[in-house]
Amino acid sequence: MPPFRGTVGAMAGGNRAALEAEALVKRYGEREALRGVSFSASAGELVAVIGPNGAGKTTLLSILAGILKPDGGGVAVEEGRVGWVPQQAALYRRLTVEENLLLFARLEKHEDPRASTEQMLELTDLGERRGEIVARLSGGNQQRINIAIGLLARPRVLLLDEPSVGLDPRQRARLWEFVSGLADDGTTVIFSTHDIQEAERYGGRLLVLADGEALFDGAPAQLREAVRREAPEAADRDFETAFVAYLHHRGH
C-alpha cells in the first residue's frame, strides 16, 4: 500500500474519528521502527502512546505530524491542521515569550496576530512574563510556550511528544490541567510518555507500542484486565509493575 496523507472522510466513511492511521510502516535501514500500526482517535479524546525505549513512539508521532513520511500505510486527518509539540521545546530562546508567540502567529497567518498572542499568553498564564527572554524561563514554562505555539495552528488534533519530561510535579500538574482543558474543549490530544502512572491518570485511551508493533489499544481499565488475563501474578501490583509484566509476558 503506497503511503498517503488525506482526510478521514476519504478513508473511512461514516467514522467520526478526528485522526486515523492505517498500517503505518517505517524503516531505518534494516530496522523496522513501525510495523503496520493502525489506530484512530476521535474529537476530544486524550490518547497516551506508551512503550519502552525504541518502541516507535516518537516515530509514530512524527509521521502523524507530517514530519516523517511512512514507508507504508497512511494517515488521514479531519479537516483542519494537526498541531505538533516536539519533545524538546521548538522555539527561539533568545526571543521573549511574546516575540515567539507573535512570530508563529504571523507565520500561521492569523488575521490579528497580536490578539492571538494575547489569547495564548492568557491561556498559558504567562502574561506577566511576556517580556522575558525564553532562555531564562524554567523548563516547565518553556514547555507551556512550546505547547502554546503548537496551539497557534488552531489544531483539531494536538500531538505532544513526551511533554512532561524534565518538569517538577507541580509544573506537571499544571501542564496536565492545561492539556485536559484543551481536550474538554474538543481538541484531540495524542501524547507519548514514559511515565506509566501519568498515562493511566490522564490518558482516556492507551496505545501500547513495543518494537514497532501496537500491542494494545484501549482504556487503562481494559489494560488492567488484559494484565489480569495474561500476567495474573502482577494484576494487583501498581500500574507500572503490571505494565512491565504485561510487556514481559508478550515477549518484550
Binding site: 505530524a65 507530517g66 514530519i67 491542521r81 516536539p86 521545546a89 521548538a90 530562546r93 507565520l107 505555539i149
Partner: peptide, 11 residues
Amino acid sequence: ENAFPRLTRGL
C-alpha cells in the same frame, strides 16, 4: 532550536 521541523511543516 528545534524550530526547523516546526517551520517546515507548512509554515
